[in-house]
Design a protein around this nucleic acid. Structure first.
Length: 948
RNA sequence: GCUCGAGUGGUGGAAUUGGUAGACACGUUGGACUUAAAAUCCAAUGGACAUUAGUCCGUAUGGGUUCAAGUCCCAUCUCGAGUACCA
């Protein structure tokens, strides 16, 4: 009997599907365990070998937990809204819903090319997903609930006193009774105070405008990152180095009316929550930096003889006496108001010059110091000295108040600016020379030349300065966060439409019972000619408030029929609630039943890429906290533990064309010739980097007549590790691996490659190792005559090998070091086969141990051993110490008649042998002098060391 | 610049967290089986001397702590990730 992996794998995949082996129930006597993967965006390119890495790891863990007696929820779905399908639609006119469906379920694309689809690819790898719970973010039955959460956010405000989100109705009744003066709420900065009387006489529209300043999602004119090439707005985390993450298009700043999420209300809780969850430290660090909390003070500088004052944020209020000038961002609203007539031309020229420079230029050109003097002076709050007010582009309009108090002796940027413009640099630090550079070490700071702050340390001076500022009414302690409210509107087609129509210019929510508001059909997926988003092309995109349905735009009368919002939601909307929806995915009456959410509660293990640190993983935490505040979910963090799997990179291959010739030169012969590297398809290259020239020529006909310059009769390609991508021709398809070696081999090999968290290049060379392990495993059970296993009693050695393996594998899985347990299996099989073990008892246990890693072969072995049910929920074998160490008691040993010490006696040594070895050990004499030995390190036959 | 993380054979990587460094696998070399190939099996494989039995050197570099350091501490170098005029 041979190991026929193709037949075995097809058989068991069919079995699992037919029997719904992995269907999870929403209640059980067993403890629950929720293992989640980041669901994929189903792109047309299909899966490559890098994608399943995390899925394999989570699948091993999920299967292990089932063996350990847990009721495991292990779902999968698709993040099926997204830009690529829309780009494809723009190019081809194909409806994104169709392309998405084909990408998931397979079919034929518009060029007649067969697409296999994600589902088939995933099935082929033998994952134990509960497919009955599949969700797709672009299905109306799913995004109905995304829209629903949006409405809940709209109907909520953040109460600072209770430190949670509350119903907007509560806020309205407070307004009616006492206005807003006593309310401690998160709201827009420009919210004016009003009394109950004021409120009650406001028009409905005025009231709505005010409420919008408090709602957790609100409309605002925000400066956004507009990408003309894509016709859309991107969030800050979708921009890399001033260009769009996807496509690398230039980004410009533009003001637009957009939905925003008041995530800033949760800044502190998002920080605090990090201490309560088991997430990777780098991920926590990234979120911490992104939230960017800094403690300091807000200080108000008055401009004498004017109505203006300038608030600044500083982390160093202790250096207030070192202020020798102030700097405003060029965009600061006061710039034009305070500039003196003499300075007007210079300032205007400078402001115009900075406005012209793109964000990218400004970032690239950090070194150049530039600025202009406004001619105006503010007054120092304590010394009352005049402080010149400058503008400079090193101050950012978007952070703090867009203005700084400049302390050149304590901040290097201020120091550079002062030196450049010959502004005085007063020193306020004791015994420090600040003439060359600023002094910023808080720990050793001692303040001088600072009136009432003299001789104080940093900490003392900060407190005293803030107290004094508060007494003057010119400042207070303040915590500033870098994180901004998240813009939530996208000018795209393929996303969730907003359940919002506009009456009298004010947004109105569509009642929950009329959801979902489905995406309308459009002729064109591009923005309209008037610059409106793609939904502006829809002819049926108006809301009839009588019929409660979407109707033709022609019917808009602003009395009963109103225009709908033309924007759609960003990609992170759907992914911020999917982990909860999996708990009850077919519920059409509720987002999930309370029964389901209270049973599953939260995700126990979440595996996915670190690239979502400041997007999905932050926004999802925000939504969860909001849902928690509103009593919808029992936990305020959605995932207890996160693991970031590393990326599997590709190993690209290059051929080298000599410039200006028809020569394609082998790598070793380039020396100093001028060559152009050209990507070649990695499938034409064998493991010793030799190129199959004929295949290459066929693939790239333009090189049909090229002259290939060989070394030793071979063409050797160059190699480089790059991200796996279609355009780099370095993609390795898991289907090809499954075809050649089987899914079990692929699963084992991806784990064997190295630690889960580590990024590593794909290299098929070693896969024969794990494949031959599976064959050896098979041969432990069968030979050419059939089954080998017997009822023979296992030997001591058999038990020892087995229990060694149980212990190690269990530890490895619990620690997520799946790579080393593959080695452990190999050692186990080698030992058992050299022991000629045929004991059914041992072989049964071994099959269960292997089952999470290589489930197909395990199921087959299990069946062949005579069992009629799936191995999936069979209890994991119990580790028993006794088989490893016969007597593990502490053993006293005398030495030189006086000293006594203890040690663990291993199987391999008896007391006499150890005593003899200790006596014989050459280092014993020196090392034990004057010490009481505590421990002897022993390896078979040898004393390694003696610990005093 | 700042914040994390990492540097171990020809290669991917182990090392019970301070206790035999290089498990396991790939690759390479030699051998067995075979008409041959594939497959399979066996042996060797960090380096240098000795080739018997051994000795010395070895975990980026330089120091330190310790009976004992890949592991801990200090400094330096290199690579990777995140972030960046954040006041």
């Amino acid at each position: 009997m041979n190991y026929d992996f193709k037949e075995i794998e097809a058989k068991w995949q069919q079995y699992w599907a037919t029997n719904q082996t992995f269907k999870a129930q929403n209640n059980s006597d067993k403890p629950k365990y929720y293992v989640l993967d980041m669901f994929p965006y189903p792109s047309g390119a299909g899966l490559h070998v890098g994608h399943p890495l995390g899925y394999i790891a989570s699948d091993i863990y999920a299967r292990y937990k089932r063996h350990k007696g847990f009721n495991v929820l292990h779902p999968m779905g698709y993040d099926s809204f997204g830009l690529p399908a829309e780009q494809y639609a723009i190019q081809t006119g194909q409806h994104p819903a169709n392309t998405t469906l084909v990408n998931i379920e397979g079919g034929v694309d518009k060029d007649g090319k067969e697409i296999e689809g994600y589902r088939k690819q995933l099935d082929r790898m033998g994952f134990s997903f509960d497919w009955s719970r599949e969700v797709r973010t672009s299905n109306p039955s799913y995004y109905k609930w995304t829209q629903w959460v949006f409405i809940q956010l709209f109907n909520s405000w953040y109460n600072i006193t209770s430190d949670k989100a509350e119903d907007i109705g509560a806020l309205i009744s407070i307004f009616e009774k006492e206005g807003n003066t006593n309310i401690n709420a998160i709201c827009d900065d420009d919210t004016a105070a009003f009394s109950a009387a004021d409120w009650n006489q406001y028009s409905k529209k005025e009231q709505e405008e005010i409420l919008l300043k408090y709602r957790l999602t609100y409309l605002a004119d925000t400066e956004v990152n507009w990408v003309p090439a894509l016709g859309t707005v991107l969030a800050n985390d979708e921009i890399v180095n001033g260009v769009s993450e996807r496509g690398g298009h230039p980004v410009v700043r533009k003001k637009m009316t957009q939905w925003s999420m008041r995530i800033t209300a949760y800044a502190q809780r998002l920080l605090d929550g990090l201490d309560t969850i088991d997430w990777p430290q780098p991920l926590k660090d990234t979120q911490t930096n992104w939230i960017g909390r800094s403690e300091g003070a807000e200080v108000t500088f008055q401009i004498p003889n004017s109505e203006f004052e300038i608030p600044v944020f500083t982390t160093r209020p202790d250096t207030i006496f070192g202020v020798s000038f102030m700097t405003l961002a060029p965009e600061h609203e006061l710039v034009e108001k305070i500039t003196t007539p003499e300075q007007k031309d210079e300032v205007e020229a400078y402001v115009a010059a900075t406005a012209k420079r793109s964000e990218r230029d400004r970032m690239a050109d950090v070194k150049t110091i530039s600025g202009a003097f406004t001619g105006a002076y503010a007054q120092h709050p304590f010394s009352k000295e005049p402080i010149p007010i400058w503008i400079g582009d090193y101050v950012l309009a978007g952070y703090g108040t867009g203005a700084v108090m400049s302390v050149p002796c304590g901040d290097q940027r201020d120091h550079d600016f002062a030196s450049h413009f010959n502004i005085p640099i007063p020193n306020i630090f004791k015994d420090v020379d600040v003439s060359e550079e600023a002094f910023a070490d808080k720990a050793t700071t001692v303040i001088a030349n600072s009136d009432f702050l003299n001789d104080l340390s940093y900490k003392e001076a900060v407190r005293k300065a803030i107290d004094a500022l508060e007494d003057l009414g010119q400042g207070r302690g303040k915590i500033n966060y870098r994180i901004r409210d998240a813009v939530f509107s996208r000018q795209r087609y393929w996303g969730e439409p907003f359940p919002v129509y506009y009456a009298d210019g004010m947004p109105q929510m569509i009642a929950a019972e009329h959801l979902p508001v489905k995406l309308p059909e459009v002729e064109k997926y591009l923005p309209t000619e008037t610059g409106e988003p793609p939904l502006g092309n829809a002819t049926h995109w108006a809301w009839d408030t009588l019929k409660n349905e979407v109707v033709s735009n022609d019917l808009i009368d602003h009395k009963t029929v109103f225009p709908l919002d033309l924007n759609t939601m960003p990609a992170w909307a759907g992914s911020s609630q999917y982990f909860n929806r999996y708990m009850d995915p077919h519920n059409d009456a509720e987002i999930f039943s309370q029964e389901a959410i209270n049973y599953w509660e939260d995700v126990d293990l979440y595996i996915g890429g670190v690239e979502h640190a400041t997007s999905h993983l932050l926004y999802a935490r925000f939504w969860q906290k909001f849902m928690f505040d509103r009593g919808l979910v029992p936990k305020d963090e959605f995932a207890k533990k996160v693991i970031n799997q590393g990326m599997i990179t590709g190993t690209s291959a290059f051929v080298y064309r000599e410039e200006g010739t028809n020569n394609v030169i082998s790598k070793g012969l380039i020396s100093n010739k001028k060559v152009m590297p050209i990507h070649t398809n990695v499938s034409f290259v064998n493991s010793s980097d030799e190129l199959d020239i004929e295949s290459f020529k066929e693939w790239r006909p333009e090189y049909k007549d090229a002259n290939f310059v060989l070394e030793d009769g071979k063409y050797v390609v160059g190699r480089e590790v790059e991200k796996m991508s279609k355009s780099k021709y370095n993609v390795v398809n898991p289907d090809a691996i499954c075809e050649a070696y089987g899914a079990d081999s692929l699963r084992l090999y991806e784990m064997f490659l190295g630690p889960l968290e580590q990024s590593k290049p794909w290299n098929t060379a070693g896969i024969t190792g794990v494949h031959s392990f599976l064959k050896k495993l098979w041969r432990l059970y069968f030979d050419e005559n059939g089954a080998k296993f017997t009822d023979a009693t296992p030997t001591k050695e058999n038990y020892k090998t087995l229990h060694k393996t149980i212990k190690k594998v269990e530890e490895d899985i619990e620690n997520f070091s799946f790579n080393t347990s593959v080695s452990t299996f190999m050692i186990c099989v080698n030992e058992l086969s050299s022991q000629k073990c045929t004991s059914k008892e041992i072989l049964e246990s071994l099959a269960i141990l292997v089952s999470p890693y290589a489930p197909h072969i395990a199921e087959e072995l299990w069946e062949q051993l005579g069992h009629s049910t799936s191995i999936a929920t069979i209890a994991f074998p119990k580790f028993q110490e006794q088989y490893l160490v016969e007597s593990s008691k502490e053993y006293p040993i005398s030495f030189n008649g006086k000293m006594r010490f203890t040690m663990e006696l291993s199987l391999d040594l008896d007391k006499e042998a150890i005593e003899a070895a200790v006596m014989a050990h050459e280092k014993t004499q020196q090392q034990l002098q004057g010490r009481t030995p505590k421990k002897v390190i022993v390896v078979p036959g040898k004393i390694v060391n003696i610990v005093g």
